[in-house]
Design a protein around this nucleic acid. Structure first.
Length: 319
DNA sequence: AATAGTCGCAACCGCCGCAGC
DNA sequence: TGCTGCGGCGGTTGCGACTAT
């Protein structure tokens, strides 16, 4: 869903920092008077529709790159940096907009664990998503959750919390989503077949083909993501099917994921949780962080409601 | 209905590394 | 070797939209 550009009037358009960037952009602190005049005319703040069109048309004709000269040649009174940013983060035709899917969120969590705040590197594995978008997602959603858990987003405690609590739920959610879509397609195909039969048409074969195509499309979407994460979505899909079979929850998905080399810790956590419940709630102590262990136990029993701790469902719902 | 607080995100800032001269 | 220009990256800001009171 493409969000319309908001109109803004940014008060910092003439801030002292603006001049600093002009020097930075042009690298000529003592540049020619003409350059100074051009610099003073530079626009900043929100882009207008006309500017967007100018930039898009110019890039369509001449390609991108060489941003400073591009900005001048296109007649845009913007810095090259601003043009580059606008193109990469907003105008590129393959920019994907809207909420992150559970698959994408899982991938972000996984890649951030590996690489930290290497947003551009992470973005390379999420086609259509920009580093800026991922960065914003992390800061607004993930760090919010860390705050709710009363710990730092970069702390080991929070990473453990993600691994044991958030990631499994995202996986289940992704699995549910995949399963629901498959069921919907199947239902639609059956509906069409029934309808064809009702009206006396021998179109079932045609509908069957259509259904197959739809499933193929779904499979392709899995493959798309799988290609990015080294079989990530394939594994997720396998795990998801398991989760769906058991009603979207349980621990089967985690074990399946573990068999495929994905989130062994999650499977272990499920085991630990189950063992803890079997033993009558003495499941603390399996985790490196004793307090986290308590959280996991509390979450699994749905009992944590005090001390500003959020129930897992609450954290999950605000996604 | 009005106001205050919070959220989401586009855009900017400042630094760094690289290439060309 | 140092300077300049540029692209790229991660961090930060500020404002409109949304929500709560």
């Amino acid at each position: 869903m493409a969000e319309p550009q908001r109109s803004r009037s940014r008060s910092r358009a003439c801030s002292p920092g603006a001049l600093a960037e002009l020097d930075d952009d042009h690298g000529q602190p003592g540049g020619a008077a003409q350059d100074q005049e051009e610099q003073l005319e530079l626009r900043r703040g929100p882009w207008t529709v006309d500017e967007d069109l100018t930039l898009v048309n110019y890039i369509a004709d001449h390609g991108d790159g060489r941003w400073n000269s591009l900005a001048r040649a296109a007649g845009l009174k913007r810095t090259g940096k601003s043009c580059r940013l606008r193109w990469l983060n907003y105008l590129r035709p393959d920019v994907k907009r809207g909420n992150f899917t559970a698959d994408e969120q899982l991938l972000i969590l996984d890649l951030h664990t590996r690489w930290g705040n290497r947003w551009s590197k992470i973005a390379q594995h999420l086609p259509g998503r920009t580093d800026n978008e991922i960065k914003n997602y992390w800061r607004t959603r993930v760090q919010k959750h860390a705050k709710q858990l009363n710990c730092d987003a970069n702390s080991k405690r929070f990473k453990d919390a993600m691994r044991y609590l958030w990631t499994p739920h995202l996986a289940a959610d992704a699995a549910d989503d995949h399963h629901r879509r498959s069921l919907l397609l199947l239902h639609q195909a059956q509906h069409h077949q029934q309808h064809a039969a009702d009206v006396g048409l021998s179109a079932a074969g045609t509908m069957g083909t259509s259904s197959s195509e739809s499933f193929a499309t779904t499979a392709e979407s899995y493959d798309d993501v799988a290609g990015l994460g080294g079989g990530y979505a394939i594994n997720l899909h396998a795990a998801g099917e398991m989760a769906a079979v058991v009603g979207g929850g349980g621990g089967c998905w985690a074990h399946e994921a573990n068999h495929q080399g994905l989130w062994p810790a999650a499977a272990a956590a499920v085991d630990q949780s189950a063992a803890g419940q079997t033993a009558g709630g003495g499941g603390g102590g399996q985790f490196q962080d004793p307090e986290l262990s308590g959280w996991v136990q509390g979450f699994s029993e749905g009992m944590i409601t005090e001390n500003n701790f959020w129930a897992l469902e609450d954290i999950w719902k605000i996604q």
